[in-house]
Computed example of a mutant assay.
Amino acid sequence: MSRIGKLPINIPENVDINYSGSELTVKGKFGTLQTKIPDTIGIQQDDSILKVSLKNETRNLRSLHGLYRTLINNMVIGVSEQFQLTLILKGVGYRAVVQGKEIVLNLGYSHPVKMDIPENVSVEVAQNTTINLKSCDKELLGLFASKIRAWRRPEPYKGKGILYKDEQIIRKAGKSGK
């Protein structure tokens, strides 16, 4: 049995969980999230504690036990507190601006990069070089952050690019001159 899957999930007061059939819906003050749960995984709710269990004990199902417990826990945390990511633009002339429902990035290309912001993600630009992303859906937040970051990955020689907040770049030595 999975060590992570056995852990109970604490449900805050302002979160409602509805489980019908294979559909799980979690509602909170920051939004509503839905997911499908396989029939082989059982969910029991006792007051403010949720437990995820298995109906059968096979190798494949045991591997899903911890996964679905973590996914449900992330949904509960997301609708009650929200997840936040911070991206930092490092480079000469790199800056970001939010215009309506899209983010415009100047990353040293001959053209500005425009990206549509997903509905459930809120974007705030501070000091032109710091992008704060917030969302109740952890998966969507990470995917959007990685799409932004894909435009300029951090490079090891000068340390320029789009970095996560506390990311450390291991620098390489350049060519040595005569």
Results as ranks from 00 to 15, higher is better:
177 G>Q: 08
146 S>R: 04
6 K>Q: 14
161 G>F: 14
153 R>A: 13
42 G>E: 02
116 D>G: 07
99 Q>C: 10
113 V>G: 10
88 I>P: 04
109 Y>S: 12
80 S>P: 10
68 Y>S: 06
10 N>A: 09
177 G>L: 02
12 P>R: 04
62 R>M: 06
55 K>S: 11
176 S>Y: 12
140 L>F: 01
115 M>Y: 08
97 V>Q: 14
48 S>H: 00
150 A>L: 10
85 L>M: 11
139 E>I: 03
97 V>K: 05
48 S>M: 00
53 S>W: 10
75 M>E: 12
113 V>S: 06
58 T>N: 01
100 G>W: 09
100 G>A: 15
160 K>P: 08
60 N>Q: 05
85 L>T: 02
35 T>P: 09
131 I>F: 14
56 N>H: 07
75 M>A: 12
18 N>C: 07
135 S>F: 08
91 G>W: 11
65 H>L: 08
9 I>Y: 03
57 E>R: 10
19 Y>F: 02
15 V>L: 05
10 N>V: 15
65 H>E: 15
102 E>V: 00
8 P>R: 01
23 E>N: 08
37 I>L: 15
143 L>G: 07
136 C>N: 12
35 T>Q: 13
55 K>Q: 07
61 L>G: 03
115 M>D: 15
12 P>S: 04
139 E>F: 09
25 T>N: 01
114 K>C: 03
86 T>S: 09
58 T>G: 01
80 S>D: 11
11 I>K: 00
168 Q>N: 06
77 I>T: 02
89 L>F: 08
28 G>I: 00
46 D>I: 00
93 G>P: 14
54 L>M: 11
59 R>I: 09
168 Q>E: 15
172 K>H: 10
10 N>H: 09
177 G>D: 09
145 A>E: 12
23 E>I: 00
